[in-house]
Design a protein around this nucleic acid. Structure first.
Length: 642
RNA sequence: GCCGGGAUAGCUCAGUCGGUAGAGCGACUGAUUCGUAAUCAGUAGGUCGCAGGUUCGAUUCCUGUUCCCGGCACCA
């Protein structure tokens, strides 16, 4: 038997018997063996301890590589599981994958874990790392594994092997030391010591078995793990930074909005927050006008008949706010009107489309609305401005022909990218969500809709990733994800192709040949909701909005009360030029005023003392800049935008 | 909705092993007119989320409830 191993540089080496990655690494250099985490064998990641029994092209993956990080995190999950089972016998293991920054493991246990348990568990994990237990891979027949887990009281593992695995699927068992093992796809590091010390348990929470709310509730423990201590530290710092940017905190600190118990999930916008909101709205409105949209406004309360016709009553009845009104008696019968507070705008837009007879000449018809919608979101979903029950979408529906889908998609993608850029977001990615299990319409329609959307997104020249089964019940969609200043992704924009609603609500137009045809509807939004988008803006800028968005742009602060009149004059001048300015005439020292307005992240503080009043100048102090500029009052407006 | 944690002054938080509470900041009043990130002094402010129960007595213990926080599930 001879096994030929090909290295990344093209060199080949023959072995007489199966050889492990570790042995190969050792053969190259002990240093490499020490740094090695896993080995890539014919494009697949293998354990270093797994004998390579066939000809292969290999590449040793050291622990500083991204692929290794996933293995480190996955190992951390297993060490966590072992630690928990050592500390809390009788706890069942289920699954524990790596995540974007770390790992988690779901356990079945009567008692939930407490924050205090986390410390103990983490210590136990470090102890297991110190023990440096070898991690080895074994392949077991399914029946043997089922029997083993059943005898060990591991119901979830046994169930998974029976129901979750294909009968011919290879079942690998990873042994960690003598007495602990878990079924797992791997790969893993050669021993627990290789995990290192750059990990930390972060939180406990509930989770459902196999992600389904109908299943058993499990106890999940989360952790973060990195290849080096420095990376862990950097991560923890990022978390701290994110906490400082929390829009709920900043919303209060900057007096933008509040939410209270009497209107859960709905926003009370304060003057500053509402100024920000209107500034954003006006910006969007201008963009839509330029892009050929017509703005409309439709009713908040609409009879249930329309929602039954659209299909929403059937699908989302539980999440709709209902208004019932007593309409008095007729023929001895109580009459009641049942209206739904609209959860979305599309059926209303179809009503406008249906007024009169539409011609193909009017298509594409782009109907936009800053549509106030209300959805009874589950209580646990609510989160500041990010998830609310009352919100306004920058919604629009494009009524067009099937042939126009591509061009409209391309135009929309352009508009969206331009707007994101204006709003400070350069990095945008696209996800394509296709037909979900629970859907309306037959497969032929879905084939057409998905095909049209795929063609359109390709024509737009945007790279995209698939998001299988995540489409809306009426059609496939593109989802646009932007990346914020500290690297977090937010899904905001969307474009959805809908062949269904025009049919259900009987929208039609007269085609060139005089026949009646159904238009296609494109549902689209750029921001998604104003509430959420403002939340994202707050966090992205850490409350320090760019000048054009800042609710209060300039504070004019006199140094002595002798300059109050002049300060007022300066402020009036700015206001007349359309600048959002205020004076601060309080009897406080200039230090105090500057500190206060700087903490409120005001873009410009205009300081005026006796000198400025005499010379009719203004001293401008820009946010984040030490140096200041003294300019003529007549020229002050130009200097603001610089 | 589910699991866990929490709710004390406008904000951030301390505290009471059951005897009705305190700090800093903010607010208010007075003094100070001081040129680039906190001037000084004083005053006011709390049904300790809400409703029951136990108790001589509950903000504290128990039950329920509302809301918030971290996840999960959901997100037309």
């Amino acid at each position: 038997m001879s096994i030929e191993i090909t290295f990344p540089d093209g060199n080949k080496k023959s072995f007489d018997e199966p050889v492990t990655g570790l042995a190969i690494a050792q053969g190259i250099s002990p240093g490499l063996a020490k740094k090695a985490a896993v080995i890539e064998v014919n494009g697949e990641l293998w354990d270093l301890t797994r004998p390579i029994d066939r000809d292969a092209t290999v590449s040793i993956v050291t622990r500083d590589k991204p692929q290794a990080l996933e293995v480190i995190r996955h190992d951390a999950a297993h060490v966590l599981a072992q630690a928990v089972q050592e500390l809390f016998p009788g706890t069942q293991i289920t699954f524990g994958p790596a995540t974007e920054v770390g790992f988690y493991y779901d356990f079945a246990r009567e008692l939930p874990f407490t924050e205090a348990d986390l410390e103990k568990i983490e210590q136990k994990m470090r102890e297991i790392v110190k023990r440096d237990l070898p991690i080895t891979r074994e392949v077991w027949p399914h029946e043997v594994a089922v029997k083993h887990f059943e005898q060990a009281g591991e119901r979830f593992k046994a169930e998974w092997i029976r129901d979750g695995l294909a009968p011919d699927e290879e079942l690998s068992i990873y042994r960690q030391g003598e007495n602990w093992l878990d079924m797992c796809l791997g790969p893993h590091l050669p021993s627990t010591g290789k995990l290192g010390t750059a990990f930390k348990l972060t939180k406990v929470s509930g989770a459902y078995w196999r992600g389904d709310a109908n299943n058993a509730q499990l106890q999940r423990i989360y952790g973060v793990a990195f290849a080096t201590e420095d990376e862990l530290k950097a991560y923890l710092k990022m978390v701290e930074e994110a906490e400082k940017r929390d829009h709920r905190k900043l919303g209060r600190a900057l007096d933008l909005f509040h939410i209270q118990d009497e209107a859960v999930g709905q926003v009370f916008w304060h003057p500053k927050g509402w100024t920000l909101y209107r500034t954003l709205e006006n910006y969007v409105r201008r963009q839509l006008e330029d892009a050929g949209y017509d703005e409309v406004k439709t009713p908040l309360l609409v009879d249930r008949k329309l929602w039954e016709a659209s299909g929403h009553w059937e699908n989302y009845r539980k999440n709709m706010f209902i208004a019932e009104v007593d309409e008095g008696e007729q023929d001895g019968q109580q009459r009641k009107a049942v209206l739904a507070v609209k959860p979305m705008n599309c059926p209303c837009h179809v009503q406008i489309f249906r007024q009169g007879i539409r011609s193909y000449r009017e298509l594409p018809l782009r109907m936009a609305e800053f549509g106030a919608c209300h959805r009874y979101e589950p209580s646990g979903a609510l989160h500041g401005l990010m998830r609310v029950r009352g919100f306004v979408q920058d919604d629009a529906h494009i009524f067009c022909t099937e042939e126009q889908i591509s061009a409209e998609t391309v135009a929309f993608c352009d508009l969206l990218k331009r707007m994101y850029k204006d709003l400070g977001f350069e990095e945008v990615s696209v996800k394509f969500s296709d037909r979900p299990d629970n859907r309306a319409g037959d497969d032929a329609i879905w084939d057409r809709a998905e095909g049209a959307l795929r063609k359109a997104v390709e024509e737009a020249g945007l790279p995209y990733t698939m998001n299988p089964g995540e489409g809306a019940f009426y059609g496939p969609k593109l989802e646009f994800v932007l990346r914020d200043a500290i690297g977090r992704d937010w899904q905001c924009g969307t474009l959805q192709v809908d062949f269904m609603l025009p049919e259900r609500l009987d929208a039609e137009y007269v085609a060139e040949d005089g026949s009646r045809k159904r238009p296609v509807m494109l549902h689209r939004a750029v921001l998604g909701s104003f509430e959420r988008f403002i939340g994202i803006l707050i966090e992205n800028h850490a409350g320090a909005f760019p000048f054009w968005l800042a609710p209060l742009q300039v504070v004019v602060a006199p140094i002595v009360s002798d300059a109050d009149d002049y300060a007022t004059e300066v402020c009036e001048r700015l206001k007349r030029a359309g600048v959002r300015a205020e004076t601060d005439l309080r009897n406080e020292k200039i230090n105090y005023k500057i500190r206060e307005h700087a903490t409120h992240k005001i873009p410009v503080i205009a300081v005026v003392g006796r000198k400025e009043a005499e010379e009719r100048t203004v001293t401008l102090r820009f946010r984040g800049q030490e140096q200041q500029q003294t300019v003529k009052l007549d020229a002050v407006v130009e200097h603001l935008h610089a």
